[in-house]
């Protein structure tokens, strides 16, 4: 979290540890940004459109109330697409290493 605390490579995973830590943190920030964006979309749109007008029939699109389409379904489809892109293109592979044999009790 603090940049001053950033570490250079060492440790049991060798030189990749610090850079993989930085990459994980970059991905962490992207995910938080994504969450804020979609939370803002659904909350703002639905706050103004999901209540309906008393006495008026519900507006239906694709068999569902219109606010469901634009306040939930459309952002859902976009979020799904973004998740696919994030997982396959943005996220980087990291050498996760092996279990530390000095600690493991796997054979116990």
């Amino acid at each position: 979290m603090e940049d001053s605390q950033e570490k250079v490579p060492t440790g049991p995973l060798g030189e990749d540890l610090a850079s993989s830590f930085r990459q994980s943190r970059k991905e962490f920030r992207f995910m938080i940004f994504t969450w804020v964006t979609f939370a803002a979309w659904t909350l703002t749109y639905n706050h103004f459109n999901a209540k309906g007008v008393e006495g008026e029939a519900v507006e239906i699109v694709l068999g569902m109330p219109k606010w469901i389409i634009f306040g939930i379904l459309v952002p859902w489809v976009i979020a799904l697409t973004l998740t696919v892109w994030f997982a396959l293109c943005f996220m980087k592979d990291t050498d996760l290493g092996d279990d530390d044999p000095t600690n493991g009790k796997g054979g116990a």
Partner: peptide, 16 residues
């Protein structure tokens, strides 16, 4: 995604 990569990595370092 939030924790998985680091969690798995730290878990392996710790042998947990």
């Amino acid at each position: 995604g939030l924790l998985a990569k680091r969690l798995n990595q730290v878990g392996r370092i710790a042998g947990a």
